[in-house]
Amino acid sequence: MKNKLKKNISATLLGGLAGLINGLFGGGGGMVVVPTLTDLIGRERKKAQATAMLVILPLSLISAFLYSSFGYCDPNTLIPTMIGTAVGGITGALFLRKTSDVILFFLFYTLMFFAGLKMIF
C-alpha cells in the first residue's frame, strides 16, 4: 500500500517534469515519459513508446498554441520542415528494426552529445 502511494507520487512528479521540459524546450518530454513508463510503471518498451505519444501529443498541442500566441512562428520555415517530418516519419517507422540498433544508438547519442556542447558554447 505504502509502495503504491510512493509510486503514484513519483509518477505524478515525473509527469510534471515531462510537462515542464516539453513546455520549456518545445520537445523532449518523451525522454522522461518513456523511462517513467518502463522503469517505474513496468510497461514493455513498445507499449511505453506508444503510450508516451498519448501524453506528448496533447502537451505539444498546448505548447504549440502558447508559443504561437507568443508570436514565435514562421510559416516559411515551418512548412518545408513539416513536409520533411511527415516523409521522414513514415520512412523511420518502416525502417524500424531493419537496421542494427547498436549503430543507430551510437549515432543518435553521439550526435546528441556534440549538438548539446555546440549549443552551450
Partner: peptide, 15 residues
C-alpha cells in the same frame, strides 16, 4: 495519470 500533472507544468514551462 501522467498527462494531468504534465499539462499543468507544460503551461508553466512555456511561460
Amino acid at each position: 495519470f501522467l498527462l494531468i500533472p504534465a499539462a499543468v507544468f507544460t503551461v508553466i514551462g512555456a511561460f
